[in-house]
């Protein structure tokens, strides 16, 4: 019971950061989502110890482990696009797969090259 209350309070705290991020986004008309701005702020505040780890730990862990629940509603909207994937839309699946393979290869190769080069220097 007490733990549940703690988690809810901490989620409200995270919500405040989201509101601040959204406020910054709309005030400066930034194209970056308010939630990302809020996240960067929270990360910085944690790093410089303005916010203590204890204040967000349980709430953040709970939110992160249940993120899937919060993305379900937006994703269910795909039910209005089934006919799209019967036609030309099918090509997009192939495009996503090709592009993802290229990301995987380029990222892994570039980091491996850097890690090896670093080791040679030592």
């Amino acid at each position: 019971m007490l733990k549940g209350l703690k988690i809810i309070t901490q989620i409200l705290f995270l919500y405040v950061f989201y509101l601040i991020g959204s406020w910054i986004q709309s005030t400066f008309t930034l194209p970056i989502p308010g939630s990302i701005i809020g996240m960067i702020l929270l990360f910085i505040f944690l790093l410089i110890n303005v916010i203590h780890e204890k204040w967000v730990k349980e709430g953040a862990n709970w939110m992160v482990s249940h993120l899937v629940l919060f993305i379900i509603p937006a994703t269910v909207g795909i039910m209005n696009f089934f006919s799209f994937f019967k036609g030309k839309g099918l090509l997009l699946i192939l495009i996503v797969l090709v592009s993802t393979a290229m990301v995987l290869i380029s990222t892994s190769f570039s980091t491996q090259w850097i890690i090896r080069r670093k080791k040679d220097h030592i």
């Binding site: 809020g38 967000v56 862990n61 992160v64």
Partner: peptide, 30 residues
């Protein structure tokens, strides 16, 4: 879908704080 979203949109509101929460694992693995 629109009828589903009368409730779904409430859960959708938690996406924002959910993204903010990702700051913690990033901090944890600093």
């Amino acid at each position: 879908y629109d009828t589903y979203m009368t409730g779904g949109s409430w859960l959708n509101h938690l996406l924002g704080p959910g993204v903010v929460a990702l700051a913690y694992p990033l901090y944890e693995h600093r």
